[in-house]
């Protein structure tokens, strides 16, 4: 049990996809403008991650190594398309806000990376835990970025105004460079924090 927890925690702190591995940043930059979008993106990525890791791990013993990458891509894109279609049908406003970045989960190297580096070499249980940890780690960080960007960029949180009306919106936070600034600050904080605890 303690072992499983350490695999889960690995995705959140030790190898956090955004702050430590720094992969899958493209969608983070584009989507993290509003907290609502961040939560939905996090949920979508976590779903694709957990499902594709499960399947990859289940079939890992009979996938020929020469064609493993195409097989992983087919599996990942299948789950991504499922998410995309379901969102278009039942969450149209979110689906519109995120536009092309939902289909682009297919090429998110974070999911491919975990399939190749972990799920294809470990039993199903561990793979699910690892994928969950990575997904939760991704969601937490992207939401933390979205919180700062929405607050400074629009003066709102979850579309509810929190600043007085004459607050001047910080436009740079709404544009992709804003995400870089916030990510940079978070990485610095995480490094400082983890160095001290050693």
């Amino acid at each position: 049990m303690k072992n499983l927890w350490s695999y889960f925690k690995n995705g959140i702190i030790g190898e956090n996809p955004i702050l430590r591995l720094m992969i899958g940043l493209c969608s983070v930059l584009a989507v993290s403008v509003r907290v609502e979008n961040c939560l939905a993106m996090g949920a979508a990525v976590t779903f694709v991650m957990v499902s594709s890791s499960t399947v990859v791990s289940l079939i890992r013993n009979w996938v020929p190594s020469q064609v493993r990458i195409p097989i992983f891509i087919v599996i990942i894109s299948t789950f991504t398309t499922v998410v995309d279609l379901v969102m278009q049908a039942y969450l149209p406003s979110l689906s519109q806000a995120m536009g092309v970045f939902i289909p682009l989960i297919v090429v998110n190297c974070m999911i491919m990376g975990r399939a190749e580096a972990f799920a294809s070499r470990n039993p199903v249980g561990l793979s699910i835990v690892d994928a969950l940890g990575m997904g939760v780690g991704f969601t937490l960080v992207i939401t933390a970025i979205g919180l700062v960007r929405e607050l400074l960029g629009y003066g709102q949180i979850l579309s509810i105004p929190v600043f007085p009306e004459h607050y001047q919106n910080m436009m740079v936070m709404v544009l992709p460079p804003g995400a870089f600034f916030v990510i940079g600050v978070y990485i610095a904080l995480l490094n400082r924090f983890s160095r001290r605890s050693k």
Partner: peptide, 24 residues
């Protein structure tokens, strides 16, 4: 094997598409 994976994927996508198309 690659073909088999693709066939399974195509079938499941067709199913989901059928379920969501009308709503979309």
């Amino acid at each position: 094997i690659l073909g088999l994976v693709c066939v399974v994927a195509a079938f499941s996508l067709a199913l989901v598409n059928q379920l969501t198309q009308a709503e979309i």
